[in-house]
């Protein structure tokens, strides 16, 4: 089977090795985006080593340390760089642990959406008929509603939970993959070499793997990159409204919600810093996504 693999993936690999990498090194925004993303990956993997405190271990919390401002303000200490919250929890530590949950949800929901969406798109495009109609009708209707709203209503039905957030995000995220893949499948299906492969009795799944998937890989990479950022934002919105992750697993969005209650008393750092980190990571992802879209989409070149 390995020898039977098409030329496309290796061509892609060669392409990655040359022009894309070359342009990547020349693009300030692509490098900036990559550094930001890399920074976050390091932050969430090295997690506990970067913080003195485990914010979820109640024994480590000291209520006497509550409401400490960031270290550069009066009353701040070097022990809590970004200050502490109502329970004496280190804001920096909360952000490190919260980023884990936010990033995990963004990535996992993206993978789920891509897998399910691409599969449905392939099936719809390849087999056509009533199945195609049903899948695409649902996609059309769903697209006319904002994702946040659909996710919000789904979460109101499901209740809080990381798993439920994932289901809600995948429910809104699959559509864009399904449409892209279906379009590409229809295009490829009409090509002569695919027709020939069908006539010669190559099984459908092999045709799909060999001829269709390699051709839709590049647009999918772009969509997937940007979607991680979108999902992080939607998750934050849901958690801010209290219908996202549970308080035992606070994401960056939930941290903002916690800080909102005390914002009016002037305790801004509890909510402002988590928001800044959301902005930073999504910004990094969007920078990279934009670069990839410009590079991988020949139409825009």
């Amino acid at each position: 089977m390995a020898t039977n693999m098409p030329a496309a993936p290796s061509a892609l690999r060669r392409f990655m090795a040359s022009e894309l990498a070359h342009n990547w090194l020349r693009s300030a925004s692509a490098i900036a985006g990559s550094i930001i993303i890399l920074g976050f990956v390091v932050m969430v993997t090295a997690g506990p080593y970067l913080t003195a405190q485990n914010p979820y271990d109640v024994r480590q919390l000291d209520i006497m340390e509550a409401f400490k401002p960031p270290m550069w303000l009066e009353g701040g200490t070097g022990q809590y760089i970004l200050g502490t919250d109502q329970q004496g929890r280190d804001v920096w530590a909360s952000i490190v642990y919260g980023s884990r949950i936010s990033l995990f949800i963004g990535l996992a929901a993206m993978l789920g959406s891509a897998l399910i969406g691409a599969t449905l798109g392939l099936v719809a495009g390849f087999y056509g008929g009533r199945l195609d109609t049903v899948i695409m009708r649902i996609a059309d209707i769903q697209l006319s509603f904002p994702s946040v709203l659909i996710a919000l209503v789904l979460m109101s039905a499901f209740g809080t939970g990381v798993d439920k957030v994932l289901i809600a995000l995948v429910s809104v995220g699959w559509v864009v993959y399904a449409r892209t893949v279906r379009g590409a499948t229809l295009r490829e299906k009409s090509r002569e070499y695919v027709q020939a492969a069908r006539v010669s009795g190559l099984p459908n799944h092999k045709i799909i793997l060999k001829h269709v998937l390699p051709n839709v890989l590049t647009p999918l990479i772009v969509i997937a990159t940007i979607q991680v950022g979108t999902f992080i934002l939607i998750e934050a919105s849901l958690s801010f409204l209290g219908v996202g992750v549970p308080i035992t697993q606070p994401s960056l969005g939930l941290l903002i919600k916690n800080g909102f209650d005390v914002l009016f008393s002037g305790l801004w750092w509890i909510s402002v810093f988590p928001g800044l980190f959301i902005m930073l990571v999504v910004f990094g992802i969007n920078l990279l996504g934009d670069f990839l879209r410009d590079e991988l989409n020949p139409r825009l070149k």
């Binding site: 925004s29 934050a236 919105s237 801010f240 800080g259 402002v272 928001g275 999504v282 969007n286």
Partner: peptide, 25 residues
């Protein structure tokens, strides 16, 4: 363009809170 990318990347509700803190509080 960079500014608009920031605008897309920030959570709107968080921006609202920052605005409340600066302009109201």
């Amino acid at each position: 363009m960079a500014g608009s990318l920031v605008g897309i990347s920030l959570p709107g509700f968080w921006l609202g809170m920052v605005l409340i803190f600066i302009f109201a509080v």
